[in-house]
Nucleic acid binder design. Structure first.
Lengths: 196, 196
DNA sequence: AAAATACACTAACACTCGTTAGCAATATAA
DNA sequence: TTATATTGCTAACGAGTGTTAGTGTATTTT
């Protein structure tokens, strides 16, 4: 075969990671083989190892890319001087556009993190928990200030996060509404459901 | 080892299926091995094949048990002489309690159906599509009768379904609110988000 | 008690998997 | 051009996979 094609902005490793995200999404981490990945990239399986250490490295790079982006955004939004509803709306919009833009990575990070190996697994779970707690805290502040219905905040977080990850099926669907319209619909339903 | 233990109401095959659902949920279909399943059941791997035909049979039994239950309920609810909001609420309550009661099976059916083999795969996907279309139709009727906000019905369906499947994490969480309370919270947020 | 059935065992099969070793070709730096 | 670092290849490894064949032993039926 030839060598791995790169436009000049991406290293060969990055090309592999991108293809891996797409493949892991489609087949699942365990079911996807390095030989398939090599095929997609246009190379023999063994050649991949000139660029990466292991299959599991691919998974943890993908997962933490997403996790770090989430944490970074949470930092920003917490720091803003806005009310809870505004913070939640901004967070949702970030999650939705993030899902539309980095679909493969977010999907894999969402569904395949179980296959991370230690210490990455524990680390990832901990980041996930923290993110949800901070999200719930925002909702609880909103409840305290009577901007939001009196509901169980952790439950609300679960609903919101999973509703967003439902975009998965939107992505597969043929009669797509466009991304912006999707976003507005979700905000209407979800924020509308929280507001007092 | 001994033989597979059964209380008198369940066949040995049913015991295997139940254990398989739990194992597939925990490890994922591909990552779960027949030798592990045999361990759980208390028997050697080869012995399983006195009761089942193959690993993939286990998956499609689990998936279609859930799918059939969904279809059956949809039939019932469609036939009722109630308005859209009431139908949606009933559907949601069914989905939520179904998730709490048959957690492993629903989870596996939700996340692992991709690994079904033909013709089961096509059949399952088709049932899934049909269920969603019928759900969307109920929402659209509600919009036409101005009971529901003017939103994109298929998007709303995705949000509702994925919000419900988020109970997964509730199930894992240690500080659980009880099932009934969970249900009320979800109804409040989700139906509240739809209502005009 | 005898015969038939259900069920579990051991051993092994044909594969696929991730990964490594060693070597050849190509691109880059001197 | 020569030397060096990159990147690819083939071949093979050891481990794990689902599954089958054949055999022995309980349990159930007659």
């Amino acid at each position: 075969m030839g060598r791995i094609k790169t436009d000049n902005n991406h290293t060969r490793k990055e090309v592999i990671i991108t293809s891996a995200a797409a493949l892991f999404k489609e087949k699942g981490f365990k079911a996807a083989s390095m030989r398939e990945l090599a095929d997609v990239v246009g190379v023999e399986a063994a050649s991949l190892y000139n660029h990466i250490h292991s299959k599991s490295e691919l998974l943890h790079i993908i997962c933490f890319e997403v996790a770090n982006r989430y944490m970074h955004t949470m930092d920003e939004i917490e720091a803003e001087a806005t009310n809870s509803i505004q913070k939640i709306e901004k967070l949702l919009r970030f999650l939705i556009t993030g899902m539309v833009l980095h679909y493969d990575e977010v999907y894999v990070s969402d569904r395949e993190w179980k296959h991370l190996s230690e210490p990455y697994l524990s680390n990832f779970q901990s980041q996930r928990r923290t993110f949800r707690k901070r999200f719930a805290a925002i909702i609880e502040q909103g409840i305290a200030k009577k901007e939001i219905k009196k509901i169980d905040a952790p439950t609300a977080v679960l609903i919101l996060l999973h509703a967003v990850s439902g975009i998965e099926s939107w992505h597969r669907s043929k009669v797509k509404i466009n991304g912006k319209e999707l976003e507005e619909n979700m905000i209407t339903i979800l924020v509308g459901g929280l507001k007092k």
